[in-house]
Write a protein that binds this DNA or RNA. Structure first.
Lengths: 339, 339
DNA sequence: CAAGGTATTGAGAGCGCTCTCATATCCTTG
DNA sequence: CAAGGATATGAGAGCGCTCTCAATACCTTG
């Protein structure tokens, strides 16, 4: 199957290359009859414009890069990231953009790739998943003039100049912790995470909720974990010695690990210890017991990241766009509110 | 920062565009002194060749498409797919290819995208994850002359003409089931899956293992599940009525669901029922009890898929390459062999 | 029905690279 | 040291598209 060109389509339709180009790019001022004729030829031949030629002439590729820096390598086990990828992929498909994937397993890999990513012209813009504090990648990328949006809030120090899409982590944690307070629990522990803004915001929400209800935060009831089930299991084991009545876990995976640790100690959820998670991953609903958690809108996050990036690419990049999406508390059995 | 071109690099280095191009593409017959000089300029300026121009002139993009057809949409919850993506991404990085991601959530999306994927020239080759029997995508793609390799064995009917990288599912299942037989279990059930070649091969391995040891397969001990934890939970509940002594689950997620179902029935693993999984996902080792399972080399699978595709793109596509990787049994507590 | 627009189309010049072919330079060796 | 062959470099012609600008076709309206 020989590859067709604009020229040939034009020849078949009896018009010039330029006119065919106009039809394809939906320019105004083409006689309806001509447009129709050209469209027919395109449809019948199955012609697809050559994307390299288009990129070269138009100076844009309609390819976005989806970047996950090295810090997150292991975090890929967390089902959150696959869901984000899926959401972004879907959004890109809808807007006729192609997502290129850049997962970095080491800083060296990151270093090696970043130059090519920003300067080869392959990529029109970047979606960066890196709420890790002090990501070197973001500061490196800022020196180039490639548009990007971040998923998750950047550290306060440079959040103003960076466009991002985030969920309201603080409000979510506030809801979760308040829910536990209202249920009558007093010794409410937290399985927290370190070095990421989402974790920091969830921590703040937890503290505000307790404070607003006149409870003091007992630091012995706050343990740090990573975002994995295993991490939650370990942290919960340490926490169990403090005899908490309820737990706010900063992610569903952590919560599930906590549940397992609680059971291993011969205790029951929620009868002995109530548990609330965060994220509302698919597994939260199927867990045993079903997990009370904070639902964050991952699909909308991905969609908005893509649309914001398209907007930035097409128009002026100033000022930076900041989007914070609302979250909601999903009450299930693990918090002891329903059975 | 103005974008540099070959021409300008040449001017700075005092040579022609052609010579710079030769240096970049590692052509022979350049005086060492000149090559050095050009390389210095490139390094100092941070020049990166424009990829659109390169693609247009050389007719290849160094972009591979990573396709996951719509059937698998929900299966993305299975940690297997993220790991495959990660492996392929890493392999692409190493070989200076860019992976573009095409996840299809619906047949319509698949239909809409496929034309662009194969005919726009954006993509040099495809890696298709679709061991689902009767994938329409593969048969569609075969009509074009775009190179591709599949991860997972295609259905026997057209496996001969398709290049693929697979793991030895049958041998793995054989190992797993044999392990259970050797431990003295007799009523060995299977949590199987339908409509995919990996499942069919694992089923075959299970049956051969039992047959080779003189055990007959009791069809009442074989239940069909999907690849999820929830599916395994459900299927196991049905299976429990048949009072199996041991279970071979076709994936780790299924095995974990089975363990949960067994526990909910008040039974213990492995004391009352032994469980073996398949895949050796990270969560298998951390499970409770740690899961005996069949380890498949996902990183090698991804690497070989990429390298095979590169080979096909660069040389003649004939004959189709078939690679089957060995697997190994990882014995942990869930099968009752170790504690 | 001519003049003066406006709507529609085509021609041409790149976009930044690769690759072939011609030219220039460098060694050999007789 | 001249001739011949190898080696090294440059010039030029695209790759298939977009976009500007000029040319043509089509309408108005006085």
């Amino acid at each position: 199957m020989k590859r067709l060109t604009l020229e040939e389509i034009g020849r078949i339709a009896g018009v010039s290359r330029s006119t065919v180009s106009r039809v394809i790019n939906d320019h105004p001022n083409i006689r309806p009859a001509v447009r129709q004729r050209v469209e027919d030829v395109i449809r019948q031949t199955g012609y697809q414009p050559n994307s390299a030629a288009r990129s070269l002439a138009s100076r844009q590729s309609r390819v976005f890069g989806l970047v996950m820096p090295s810090i997150l390598q292991s975090a890929f086990a967390d089902p959150y990231y696959p869901l984000v990828i899926q959401a972004i992929s879907h959004a890109c498909n809808q807007h006729d953009y192609t997502p290129a994937l850049f997962l970095f397993q080491t800083p060296e890999e990151e270093e090696k790739m970043s130059q090519r990513i920003v300067a080869s012209g392959l990529i029109d813009g970047l979606i960066i998943t890196a709420d890790t504090i002090n990501s070197t990648f973001v500061s490196k990328i800022q020196q180039y003039d490639i548009p990007f949006v971040q998923i998750g809030r950047p550290p306060t120090s440079n959040a103003a100049s960076i466009s991002y899409v985030d969920v309201d982590n603080e409000a979510g944690a506030y809801l979760a912790a308040s829910h536990l307070v209202q249920l009558g629990y007093r010794r409410i522990g937290q399985l927290a995470t370190a070095h990421n803004t989402a974790g920091a915001d969830r921590d703040a929400g937890y503290r505000h909720a307790l404070g607003d209800r006149g409870l003091e935060v007992d630091e012995a009831l706050v343990k740090v974990s990573d975002f994995s089930e295993a991490g939650g299991y370990q942290a919960m084991q340490a926490l169990l010695d403090q005899q908490p009545e309820a737990i706010f876990a900063q992610s569903d995976a952590i919560a599930l690990g906590a549940v397992r640790a609680i059971r291993d100690r011969g205790l029951r959820v929620p009868d002995d210890i109530a548990v609330v998670g965060f994220d509302d991953m698919p597994l939260a609903a199927n867990a045993d017991p079903p997990l009370t958690t904070v639902r964050q809108p991952i699909n909308r996050t991905g969609m908005l990241a893509v649309e914001t990036l398209i907007d930035i690419v097409r128009t002026t990049p100033e000022p930076a766009r900041h989007i914070v999406l609302p979250v909601e508390l999903v009450i299930r059995a693990s918090s002891g509110a329903v059975y």
